[in-house]
């Protein structure tokens, strides 16, 4: 039976990968008997043994450093970082070794490591449990950075990440872990490419979740449902908004994004992370460089504010909302 939640899809992808490839090994904190604090590794230790779903000491640099050595020997480690902000101790291993090993060894040593990171807010988490850290990773050459926003992509992208011969930072939107897919747009729009429930999704391809003619919303991960809801609401104002789900921040799919922007001439980039120096800035710059003559208005961004992630009682003001997205759409110079 196909999983109906993101957690179920991720669990199925790990189970199928462990079953299909004896080199795949899962390691992290509490991934064994507990099944991970989000239950993504539920049942894997029981099915495949403690060595293939390994509870490690509580030390993220050690986890990733150990995974590097395992990958050098020919295994295919899948690392779980327990939370976004708890992945930072592993940053040096990630930036100085994981991202660079293929390059610094002239292609002789590739590191097929998947680093799973639950990320983002909107779940009522206290301090250090809600960071959106994608820009740090996306800024590091040598890493692939992907983030699923649907159940099917949870499965398909994770299978692809584990199968990849390059390291992949796999960002899992916590607020989508247990929700069913949002209505109106999780299936790819006509002509777009995407995997079915049990298929591998290609890394490096964005997908048009909703076709539209008025303006294009570009988003990923936890903000996809917000954008789809905004597109639904905009119909009342006579606006037909397209929604692009990037899925893969690195490699970046210029082709799909630019085609979707050229089709409407207006674009808003939406993400939870702070705006300054964020992925949205890169997306806006790329659109400016490649679609300038098609634009009727500057590319706008709706992002988290440039503040440390707020306490949970205040996070609703920080996160992109349907109203903030619609306000941005309204500022796209519609008057002629």
């Amino acid at each position: 039976m196909s999983p109906t939640t993101m957690v179920g899809a991720l669990n199925a992808a790990l189970r199928d990968s462990l079953r299909d490839d004896p080199d795949v090994h899962v390691l992290g904190e509490d991934v064994g008997a507990l099944g991970g604090v989000f239950r993504v590794t539920d049942g894997l230790a029981a099915e495949f043994g403690a060595a293939r779903c390994l509870d490690t000491p509580l030390a993220e640099a050690g986890i990733l450093g150990t995974a590097i050595g395992m990958a050098m020997y020919g295994l295919r480690p899948v690392v779980e970082m327990q939370f976004d902000a708890f992945a930072y101790p592993a940053f040096e291993q990630l930036v100085s070794h994981v991202a660079k090993m293929r390059n610094r060894t002239g292609g002789r040593v590739g590191l097929p490591i998947t680093i799973r990171v639950p990320y983002g807010g909107g779940v009522g988490g206290v301090e250090h449990h809600s960071d959106s850290s994608e820009a740090y990773y996306a800024h590091t050459p040598g890493l692939h950075v992907v983030t699923p926003a649907t159940v099917a992509d949870g499965y398909g992208l994770l299978r692809a990440a584990i199968a990849s011969d390059d390291p992949v930072v796999f960002l899992e939107p916590k607020r989508l872990y247990w929700s069913a897919d949002p209505p109106g747009g999780t299936e790819p729009a006509a002509g777009a490419t995407s995997g079915a429930q049990d298929q591998v999704a290609p890394i490096g391809r964005a997908v048009v979740r909703r076709a539209g003619t008025s303006a294009t919303l570009i988003t990923y991960g936890p903000s996809l449902p917000i954008c789809l809801a905004a597109a639904q609401a905009a119909r009342a104002d006579g606006l037909d908004l397209a929604v692009v789900d990037l899925r893969s921040l690195v490699p970046f799919d210029d082709e799909t994004v630019c085609a979707a922007v050229r089709a409407t001439g207006r674009a808003v980039v939406v993400h939870e992370a702070s705006g300054f120096g964020g992925v949205g800035a890169e997306v806006a710059a790329r659109i400016g460089e490649q679609c300038f003559h098609h634009l009727a208005a500057p590319v706008l961004r709706v992002t988290g504010y440039d503040i440390p992630y707020p306490p949970p009682m205040l996070e609703k003001h920080h996160l992109p909302s349907v109203d903030r997205v619609l306000d941005a759409v309204a500022r796209l110079q519609w008057e002629q």
Partner: peptide
């Protein structure tokens, strides 16, 4: 940093 790599390789 490479000390952890030695551990992972030996473990593997």
């Amino acid at each position: 940093t490479q000390a952890a790599h030695a551990v992972g390789l030996a473990h593997a």
